[in-house]
Design a protein around this nucleic acid. Sequence first.
DNA 1: CGACACCATACTGTATACAATGTACAGGTC
DNA 2: GACCTGTACATTGTATACAGTATGGTGTCG
Lengths: 226, 226
Amino acid sequence: MILARIQKLSVAIPENLAEMLEEEIIFGRLKSRERLTEEMVAARYGVSRSPVREALRLLERDGLVMREARRGIWVSPMSQRDFDEVYTCRIELEGLVAKQAAEFADIEKKAEFKNLLSELKQAQARNDARQFFIVDVRGSFLTYTLAGNKTLTRLLGGLEKQALRYRYHAYEQDPKIIQLSLDDTARIYDAITAGDGESAKAMTENLIREIWQSMRAGIRDAFGEG
Amino acid sequence: MILARIQKLSVAIPENLAEMLEEEIIFGRLKSRERLTEEMVAARYGVSRSPVREALRLLERDGLVMREARRGIWVSPMSQRDFDEVYTCRIELEGLVAKQAAEFADIEKKAEFKNLLSELKQAQARNDARQFFIVDVRGSFLTYTLAGNKTLTRLLGGLEKQALRYRYHAYEQDPKIIQLSLDDTARIYDAITAGDGESAKAMTENLIREIWQSMRAGIRDAFGEG
DNA sequence: CGACACCATACTGTATACAATGTACAGGTC
DNA sequence: GACCTGTACATTGTATACAGTATGGTGTCG
């Protein structure tokens, strides 16, 4: 999804704009609490305010920006509190989607996990964090697709982006956090491929809970408790 | 939230529009798969297309309408599949929010549960389904508020509306389904008030699971498997 | 009689113009 | 000097005008 802008940009300007802005926010080029005026964004991307407004609605939906009526829009502040919120929700929903992916999906698509895993390893070897996260997100979306639960996908799509923001920040502080999750991720992919729903669910919940706990103090130090 | 339009309507036209349309969809005055053209909605509510477009984005966010690019917008179709998706997500998230509400909240606000419960009983006694559902939703939002988890509230806000659509339909088929949940709801409110998070979570999950199972066949007969 | 192409139409998508509101700064008053 | 008030400006919110695309019908050709 992050790289979707490779598609023709002429179609669906608001969605493409939203994806570009998402990237800017996730990778920290647009900073927490930074003001976004519609005209500024419009000028920067060479479009009018109409599609910009719609793009900002999409970002608002996913919690990446906050709007105050008639006052403006700001990049959502980061905080330990917000981080906790996102991760407590993710534990439940990512567990559920892993279970459903394991139980209902077809073998062919599951084979794609192998490619993703090797891409993850390559990115890690090259210390290419951005690429690592992008492939990681593709893995998540493959899981969502396998689960075939559109509602769940819709909910997780938003959470994923917020989570990635914190994960990328943590990476900048200490690049080796990337290594934390790779082995566990491989095991989860295996469980999904093998059709072991309960196991996939339990491992996913544990992995996310561990990542949550390991990042928590650093997030508080960087952004405050909120 | 449903009755929020009592507030000044002059502020935030898109949000107010969205709430009115939500009600139309939930209570079946706008039917499944019905076409919505922007101009029609605009004319009906006496505004221009700009705020209508934003309102429809909000409805899309909550899964109440579906948009196909450059083709138009339709009221989301109902189906057993969609119903299953909404309820499997709700089991996890409503359980989580009940737990957090029990653990973190202050006594004063919790007292409000008593009023809500008596309002529910009154509505049930009068066979006033709409009022029953509206109060029920207020109970959910009180729980969300107590939990103090904005992210979770955002996610559940959308699910709640979709769920209510199915529940109202079920009520029309057989008005006595309202009675199903009242006793359990009372026990859950008690657990939250008593601060018993695990119990509140377990009971909430069970209640939603039971409602899900009891409604499932009827939904399939009415809307198909999807 | 059927199929394909073309055109009219209706609607969404985007740009621009206008209205309303919130904010900051300057000036005046106590 | 501090606080209040009025005004100018910046920005959001809404309306309207224009562009582009999908659909349905009609006409013509095979």
